[in-house]
Structure formats: structure tokens, C-alpha cells
Simulated assay, not measured.
Amino acid sequence: MKQPLGIILAGGRATRMGGGDKGLLRLGDGTLLDQVIARIAPQVGALALNANGDPARFAHLGLPVLSDPVGGFPGPLAGVLAGLDWAAERGADAVVSVAADTPFFPCDLVPRLVLAAEGMAAPLALAVTPDGRQPTFGLWPVALRDDLRAALGAGLRKIVMWTDRHGGQAALFDEAGEPFFNVNTPEDLAHARARLEEA
């Protein structure tokens, strides 16, 4: 399999943060998105951002900004599909998704997802911790993008229902320290800032 491409999922409405773009909130010397990009960019062949609305607000990042190909804010699967369509245009076999509000995910995320999907005709794997699946962190095959498009068109919204349907594998991440801690509330952001200062 060729090196996967990467898609950062930032298409949600951030209602628990009062709306707006969570990824543009300040964290450390930059923003949440800066932290996420620094972790995922070295692991993938190219990187894009899934976000809706005016793409100009992300122009400083220098990344392609892909809107949901399905209307009505159907959730992260629409962002995955946007990434798959973009990857297909670039001749890639797969894309790895990460969430824009999760700044501490593992720096070896991609190779561990690829390893979990080894031997599959259409490589599909989700990150899993002892607490459960982390469905916005996954390896997705370009070969199944039309199936995903049809599923979204039929009303499917739950990621794991689609991945289970296609025999999605699990990549276990059992290290300490909440590697998939995500920022949903102002309190979470304060926690992330404290954690970064301690690192």
C-alpha cells in the first residue's frame, strides 16, 4: 500500500464550545490545529483539512480545505468521504483521519493503523483504547468511497456501523496519558493548556 494521505476533521459546529472553529483556539505557541498538524503531517504523504463555510479562515495553514460532499452536517463520515475523494484524485489508496480537537494523539498513529489493517483487500482500521473505539481516528480505503457515499445518502451517520459492515480492524493504543483526549469544553481547553505546559 502506498503511504496514506491525511485528513483533519474540523467540519463540526463546536456547540459545546459556543460555536466557531475549535481548531483555531489558542494552545501553546499556536492553535489546536497547529498541534494536530505537527503530529500528523510527518506521518502522511499529503494533508488536507475538512471544514465547512468560508475556507479563507484557514488560508494561513496552506492546506487544501475540503467541505462535506453531503449537506446537512451529517457528521465525521462526510469528512472522511471528502478526504477519500481528494485522495482518489491524487492516486492514493487510503486516507488517515484525525480529529481537529485532539492535540495529543500518538506520533506513530499511522503505522499502527496500517499494521492493524495488514492483509485486508480494502484496508480499514480504527484506533481503539481500553475505554473503547476512537472512531474519528482511522485508516480508510479509497476503494470503498462510493459505498460510503451511498451509505451516507441512505442516512447512515454512525461510523462504527459502517466500519463493522466492512470488517474494520482495531489498532490498540493502550499507553497511559489519554492519547485521544479531545477538547469539547472551555474546561477541556484549560486542561490541554496545562498538560502542554507540563510536557
Rank of each mutant, 00 (worst) to 15 (best):
M1D: 06
Q3H: 03
A10K: 03
G12N: 14
G23I: 06
L24H: 02
L27H: 09
T31Q: 13
D34S: 02
Q35C: 04
I37D: 00
A38T: 00
A38K: 00
P42F: 00
A51Q: 11
N52G: 09
G53A: 07
A56Q: 12
A56D: 13
A59C: 07
P64R: 04
L66G: 04
D68P: 02
P69A: 02
G71M: 07
G72I: 12
F73R: 10
F73E: 12
P74W: 10
L81N: 02
D85H: 09
D85G: 06
A87K: 05
R90Y: 04
R90L: 10
G91S: 11
V96L: 08
S97G: 11
A99L: 14
P103I: 10
P106Y: 08
P111G: 11
L115H: 07
A116Q: 13
A117Y: 06
A122M: 05
P123V: 13
P123D: 02
V128I: 08
T129D: 02
P130S: 10
G132I: 13
P135T: 10
D146E: 15
L148K: 07
A151Q: 12
L152I: 03
L152Y: 01
A154R: 15
K158N: 12
K158G: 04
M161I: 09
W162V: 08
T163L: 07
D164E: 15
A171M: 06
F173K: 06
D174E: 05
D174S: 11
E175M: 14
E178D: 15
F181C: 00
N184S: 06
N184K: 10
T185L: 09
E187F: 04
D188Y: 03
L189V: 08
A192G: 08
R193K: 14
E197S: 15
E198L: 12
